[in-house]
Design a protein around this nucleic acid. Sequence first.
DNA 1: TCTCTGCAAAGAGGA
Length: 902
Amino acid sequence: MTIRGVVVDVSEPKTVSTQYGESELVEVDLRPDRGRGEPTTVTLWDKWTETATYLEPGMELAVTNPEEREYRGEQQFSTTGDSMVVVEPDFLVDVTDVRSWVQCPRMYYLNKIGGTPNAYPVVKGTIVHEVFGDLLRGRDLDESIDERVEEAGLELGMLGRSADEVREEVRQNASAIEGWLQQGTLTEGDEWRSEMTLVSETYGLKGRADAVRRGMPVELKTGKNTKREPRFHDKVQATCYALILGERRGEPPDTGTLLYTKNAAVERNEESGDLSPAKEFSIGSGFLKFVLRTRNALAAMEHDADVPTGYEADAKCEYCFEQDTCMAVSGRLGQESKAGVVGSPVPEEERDYFDRVYESIERERRAVHREYAKLWEQSPAERADDDRALVNLEPTERTELDGGRWELRARGTGAVSKIREGDLVLASDGDPIAGEAELARVERLGPEVVVTADEPVELHRLDVYPSELSTDRMLTALHDAVLTQSPEEKDVLFGRREPDFSAVEETFVPNNDAQDEAVSLAVGCEDCALIHGPPGTGKTYTLAHIVQALVKDGERVLLSAFTNRAVDNALEALVDQGFDDFVRVGTESGVRDDMQEYRLERAGDPDERVAELRDAQVVAATTATCGSRIMREQAFDAAVVDEAGQLTEPGTLAATNLAERFVLVGDHQQLPPVVQADEPEPSDLPTDEDGNPAPGATLSRSLFQRLIERYPDASVMLDRQYRMAQRIQAFASREFYGGQLRPATGEVAGQHLRQLDVVDVDALPERLSDQVAFVDPDGRAEGNTNPIEAETIAETVAAYREAGVPAEEIGVIAPFRAQVAEIGKHVPDAVAVDTVDRFQGSSKEVIVISFVATGSLDSPIFEDYRRINVALTRAKKALVLVGDADALGTDDTYGRMVEWAR
DNA sequence: TCTCTGCAAAGAGGA
């Protein structure tokens, strides 16, 4: 049994005499049910009083196996010898973070904001870990080493290491592993699992254990340790895994193993001590509790987004390898630090910005943690209608691939989910938490589901695997922007100076003034240029011209965007213009097939790989990839960023940090960045002098929008659109672009379906003969669907089809995923049916929009008018709005839309 | 019960 609730009060510690002598206690008042229940008191005894010192009202607390008693008619609880106390159990602490926290809380913080550098020990450690896994899977040693070193070609090249030298070093480490495996430690009955993904609901921990042998954790270290005992922080790490394994099995393992593989390379006469690589240690309940208290200290600090000072630990700073960094960061950000402070702080507005963005990112991190919680929130059966998992798969085939990986196949159920091909997912035997689960890559979806994974799991279920990668990368981008950029480079970001431009006389785009001005602005900018591209205005085409013009000036250019699709589209535009001297950085599954030939391979000869990147004049990658440790070391003259309106501030910074100056291309009147966290009410946000949210106070306001509002003179709006008929674009132009958006030519303005040879307009019903139509089907919303409306949509689509419009040229847009699925049942596959959000960026001759809502517009999805802007501007020749006129009329903007469409 | 794209990850060194 576990008592869990929100802390309302924490008493002062008291010392009392008990039958066992003096004991300390703290009483904590909790409200169960996430703060909704009646308050109850939990007494924390002895060492758990340490955890009480971090507790504050508002934090969540869980106590396992408490003693329950009645006191004056009230139910009270207290810790027992079997109890575990967990602070903020929903906050999932990474096991490696507990390890670095034990070394020094400030080291944890520095790692978190600074990211992992491309350092040789890290890269080598990774290779040795992979070889370890291969050996456990019974693979040939030499073959494994050759392949794993080859795979790290790019990283090794960046570090100036030769493959031969690395192979030799890895071989020495691996021989220690092999020797240990052969020592008889590995017997027939040994049960091995390598790289085990572990998540603990009870203790709020997650991580990947290097290996688990007979239920006991084995951690591999590529360093040496000639002491008898494993290093303390290594034991802490292994014990965290023991804690999680204990939750799964009822009883934690009593032994952990550390494998120090460099011991094998130490000369016996050089150093005395214990040279055996494998060191075992026993895991007692006291140690398990210590590890959990450490985790609690970390979680409590994260609750308030506090910054550790280093005084929390008794580590000696003068021996610390991070001392210089630690002092420099403290100095720049004005933080208190045990190691001391060096340098002077950055200006106050920059420190405030850092704090605000940091908090926004940490809110987002907590939202990702809640996604993890959904892994165990519901039983598999209940999840049948949940779109974050594919359940009830029937495993059909398991094939071992070259390199020891497995291809797993299963029969699907045809259910829809947010899982897509190429995604990284948790593949499991049906229970992703307590059962066998492995990280896997989705290769194919459909009637047959195909994934690849390291272990041959019985494929019954796939779950979305939440990732903190983008939050981590936003954080390092923030770090780099504030701490590594020069004061001059930061002036514009912090509103201290108007962006500078030098005059450009050349003509780049002869037949479109705004596009030409955009290219001139971009080429002449000294700081930044902002290109505002409404729907259909040729922003990708313009962007490609900008890249080419910069290249012609001898500049090294970074081309980036939020999505892989946008990056590849921009490259396609470049290829169309006859330019293909670029390198595409990204994962194989992310890059479109026709761009694979430009993709930078990671594997190969170190010198060749790194030369390919270093010598590239144009490098293209998503902003997430710009934050990777490889890209962070690249430098560019200019960064050109597409889809900038959909990027968070720190997301944008990941790209702009790498360049001297930047060009942002986007449209802040279309969809804003996707943010998972519930953001504070606008009234609760700190504001700037114009009444806008202060920079970075919310992630859902893009840097593009902030800068374009702050520096209108640094921007150009592309005002001529090549997509929509005049009649179709009119409403969007008026509502969202101040009437500035207009058709590029008379031909564009006068487009009509009758111009398509295959279409017989006379065959269309009267109400669909105009370019814009409104239909009220008199439907009824049922949750997020409206079946009657879906039928009307299907009839409308059928009418266009019968008149000769090809299915490929018809698109249907709905606000909700559920309605998308409903409509999908009634229209041919070739008709694209999708949510507004996923339709952004594409267009069709005919667009039919389903509004779903009846009676009123009470879903938050209708609150952001930018969503209707996107929906209405996808159509070229015909647009049909299908919805309840009364519901739409309850809102002024939607009401005007109906008036316009009728 | 609102919308959702990116990413793999991996860690040595000492008084």
